[in-house]
Amino acid sequence: MHYFITGTDTDCGKTLVTLGFMQLCLESGLKTTGMKPVAAGALRTHEGLLNPDALAIQGLSNPPLSYSEVNPYCFEPAVAPHLAAKLAGTSIDLERIARQYQQLCETHEAVVVEGAGGWKVPLNDGQDMADMCRRLDLPVVLVVGLRLGCINHALLSMDAILASGQPLLGWIANHVDANMSLAEDNIQTLKQRIKAPLLGRIPRLDRVSAETVATYLSLPSAY
C-alpha cells in the first residue's frame, strides 16, 4: 500500500493527509512510514536542518527511521525546491530519492510519499514533482485546499495527473478556509467533475493529530 500525496498548492493539507493515511495503515497492522523527499522551510538545530512536517512523519513511522531516511533533501528557506537547492549549492537528484524510497519499501509494508507544493513544482532544471511520482511509479491522491479558486486549481491538477499516466485514486477536501462561502456547493461541483472518488473531508481542526485526521479519511478501496 504505497501512495503519493499531492495537492492543489502549498499549505493545502498534504501533511495532514499523509499522517492520516499513515495512521490508517498502522491501524490495519501494517509496518508503515511516510517519506517527504524534499522539504523547503526548515529550522537550523544542533542536529542540522529539520523540517517540522518531516519530523511529524518520522515520529509516526513504525518501525522507526532516522530523519534523513524520511527527508533526504532538506533546505532552510521556504521557497520553491529548485531555488532552495540552488541557494544551497546542490541539485535534487531523483535517482537518490528513488534509491531511498526502495529502501523504505524493503522495511515497511506501507509508504506514504508527500510531495512539495503542487503537482508541477520544479525540482531541478529539467524535472518536477510529476517526474518524481512517475519515477517512483506511485498512485496519486489529490488534496484540495478548500478556499476561493480551489475548483480551477483542483481540475487543472486532475488533468495534469491524468495526463501523466499515473493513477488518480481519489481526492480529499480540506477546509483550510473555515469561512469559505458555499463550501458545500464547491465540494459537490468537484465531486461531479473529478474523475476519482472523494476519500474524505477534513474540517478546520483546533487540535491536530494523526488519530483525529484519520477519522475523517478512508484509504482507496483498491490498488
Rank of each mutant, 00 (worst) to 15 (best):
E211H: 13
I5D: 06
P167K: 07
P167L: 02
L16S: 08
D93N: 15
L155N: 15
E27S: 06
H82I: 04
N124V: 04
I97D: 09
L146I: 15
A130V: 03
A130Q: 05
G29E: 07
Y223V: 13
R193D: 07
C105R: 15
C150D: 01
A163Y: 02
H2D: 15
Y3N: 00
T33K: 00
I5F: 05
D128L: 01
V213T: 04
W171S: 09
D185E: 15
E114F: 00
Y223N: 09
G20L: 06
L217K: 01
L138I: 04
M158R: 07
N62R: 10
L190G: 11
H108W: 01
A222T: 13
R99S: 13
E69R: 11
G149P: 09
N51A: 02
N152S: 14
V143A: 09
Q103A: 14
M132C: 14
L83N: 05
D206C: 02
G118H: 14
A214W: 01
R44G: 02
S68N: 13
I202W: 07
M22R: 00
N152P: 11
F4S: 03
Y101S: 02
F75D: 02
E109R: 07
L142A: 11
C74G: 03
I194K: 04
K195C: 09
R207H: 15
I187P: 10
E109S: 10
I161S: 03
V17T: 10
L146H: 08
T18L: 00
Q192N: 14
V208K: 07
M180R: 04
L198T: 11
A88Y: 08
L138V: 05
T33E: 00
T8G: 13
E95C: 10
N186C: 13
Q166D: 02
N62C: 02
S61M: 00
E76Y: 08
Q102E: 13
V141T: 12
R201A: 08
I92A: 06
K14D: 04
E69S: 15
G7H: 11
E27M: 09
T189R: 06
Q103G: 15
C133R: 08
R193C: 10
L199I: 13
A210F: 02
Y73K: 03
A78D: 07
V79L: 12
L26K: 15
C150E: 03
E47I: 01
D159L: 05
L138K: 02
T8C: 05
V38M: 07
C25L: 09
L146D: 07
